[in-house]
Simulated scan of single mutants.
Amino acid sequence: MRRTERSAFTPEERKAAMWALLIAGLIAAFALVLQQWTQPSLGPWGADQAAASIPGVLDAQPVTTSF
């Protein structure tokens, strides 16, 4: 039995849209997992150098102004 009401999209278009959403979701999930496995490179300020202090930074004081 065929429906008499018309819809905005054909069944093939709805099926293609669902596949596109599924594939986009899988790509996004894979990107999130991949991002957790690979951390960005911070160069010389990476994890190995995180504890090293930069000269003069610990002694820095805020600038005060007098009015």
Rank of each mutant, 00 (worst) to 15 (best):
L22Q: 07
A29M: 08
L34C: 12
S7T: 08
I23N: 09
T38D: 06
G46H: 00
E5K: 01
S7K: 11
E12A: 04
A20G: 11
R6Q: 08
I27G: 12
E13Q: 08
A52F: 02
A31G: 13
R14D: 08
L58P: 04
W45M: 10
F30W: 09
A47F: 00
I23E: 10
V33A: 13
I54V: 11
G25F: 03
R14E: 13
W19M: 15
W19E: 15
G46Y: 04
E13Y: 05
F30S: 12
G43M: 00
V33R: 09
M18Y: 14
Q35M: 14
A51H: 12
A20W: 08
L21S: 14
L58K: 10
Q36T: 13
P40G: 02
E5N: 00
L42M: 10
P44W: 10
A28G: 15
G43E: 01
P44N: 07
A28Y: 12
A20P: 05
D48N: 00
R6I: 10
S53Q: 13
K15P: 03
A17F: 11
L42P: 00
L58V: 07
A17Y: 04
I23T: 10
Q49A: 09
L58F: 05
S53A: 09
G43K: 00
Q49N: 12
T38C: 07
A16V: 02
I54S: 05
E5I: 02
K15G: 06
G46W: 04
G25R: 06
P44H: 09
I54F: 07
F9M: 05
E13R: 00
T4Y: 08
T10L: 03
G46N: 03
M18F: 11
Q39L: 15
A17E: 13
E12H: 01
W19N: 15
L42R: 06
T38R: 12
L58T: 05
P40K: 00
A31E: 06
I27H: 05
P40Y: 04
W37C: 11
I23C: 08
A16P: 04
R6V: 06
Q35L: 13
G25Q: 10
W45D: 12
T4H: 11
A8T: 09
E13P: 00
M18L: 13
D48A: 08
V57F: 10
A50E: 01
A20K: 15
L21P: 07
E13F: 02
V33S: 09
A50I: 03
